[in-house]
């Protein structure tokens, strides 16, 4: 980056810099007005588009969720919170709660598996070698492919006596074969596996980029001081990757709560209806929209939103606050 250049010229001119360069210019009030014009002008297009096409429909969805509505005309059958906690409400439906549990499994599983896996690989491969960019490209490919395609792909591979089963038999692991997509206890873990396959590359790219920002000299200095490779990683590299890891955690969390495509495509309606592989989002479509219960479907959507919101707030509070508090604490310590 060319950030150094202006600093040099600034250093050269610093003494000559007038104390109040805007004496002859517009007044402070005018400047503030001007500033607000710029703010509004630059953010207005994004704001308008976002509000009209994302938030307004969301608000309507909340409205619809209070009705029993089959989607035609305007909703007229007001039911209050029936769709949420009534006798046939979402929270009373075991299958919805199963979906909630499945989302939790995917959320925790993704954080626990993808993160360390990607981190470990990134650390091991954080050195320049021939072909590194090709490798990076290949690991990112799963992320680029449409989730629908991913689901079809894995379905073909995981079908009984399909590719995976055949390969396992050939290497002698035949005894471990089970119904990857049919065994109701196993299928959610299969889904987690597929999602891991798809999104680990994304985490990997993120971490590799973050690692590239860590100055080489730091690690070499540690090596000179006698630190082992692992100590270096633990004490220097990983902490410096902190903000990258936290960004990734947030995106992963939200994605896990909203997962739909892969589960919809890779598991059959029967397996989903048993609560073995469904997520809140597939439940919303299966039970809300397919059966023309639009009010109910929207209620599930609103529940999903609130859960995501709460998760985001908690994450903000307990995890991201470290980014604010730690430097503040450090500053205080230095002062003392």
């Amino acid at each position: 980056m060319t950030a150094t250049e202006p600093s040099v010229s600034l250093a050269g001119r610093a003494p000559a810099r007038p104390a109040r360069p805007r004496l002859a210019g517009p007044s402070r009030a005018a400047r503030t007005r001007r500033k607000w014009y710029e703010i509004i002008g630059l953010t207005a297009p994004a704001l308008i588009v976002f509000t009209v096409f994302v938030l307004a429909p969301m608000a309507f969805a909340v409205y619809y969720s209070l009705y029993k509505w089959s989607g035609y005309g305007w909703p007229t059958d007001f039911r209050g919170l029936d769709n949420y906690i009534g006798t046939y409400g979402a929270f009373r439906d075991k299958i919805f709660l199963d979906g909630l549990r499945n989302n939790a499994i995917i959320l925790v599983g993704s954080l626990l598996v993808q993160g360390p896996l990607a981190l470990g690989i990134a650390l091991l491969l954080n050195r320049r070698f021939r072909g590194r960019s090709v490798f990076r490209l290949l690991t990112f490919v799963p992320y680029v492919i449409a989730p629908v395609t991913v689901g079809i792909m894995w379905q073909l591979i995981l079908v009984r006596d399909g590719t995976l089963d055949t390969l396992m038999s050939r290497v002698g692991l035949g005894g471990l074969i089970t119904g990857w997509l049919a065994n109701t206890h196993v299928v959610i873990w299969t889904m987690l596996f597929i999602l891991t396959w798809q999104y680990t590359g994304f985490a990997l790219i993120l971490f590799l980029a973050g690692l590239a920002n860590i100055p080489h000299e730091l690690m070499e200095a540690a090596a000179i001081d006698g630190a082992s490779w692992w100590q270096t990683q633990r004490r220097i590299t990983i902490p410096m990757l902190g903000s990258t890891i936290r960004i990734w955690m947030f995106l992963s969390m939200i994605g896990s709560l909203q997962v739909f495509d892969v589960i919809w495509v890779a598991s059959t309606p029967a397996v989903r209806s048993l609560g073995a592989s469904n997520s809140m989002a597939t439940y919303m479509v299966d039970h809300g929209f397919t059966e023309r219960e639009w009010g109910y479907g929207n209620a599930v959507a609103v529940i999903l939103f609130f859960i995501s919101f709460i998760a985001a707030v908690i994450f903000q509070r307990f995890v991201l606050s470290r980014d604010i508090e730690a430097p503040a604490k450090a500053r205080r310590r230095v002062k003392n």
Binding site: P57, F60, M284, A301
Partner: peptide, 9 residues
């Protein structure tokens, strides 16, 4: 935070 499918209608 909002699932896209829900606001679609």
């Amino acid at each position: 935070l909002f699932p896209a499918a829900a606001g679609i209608l």
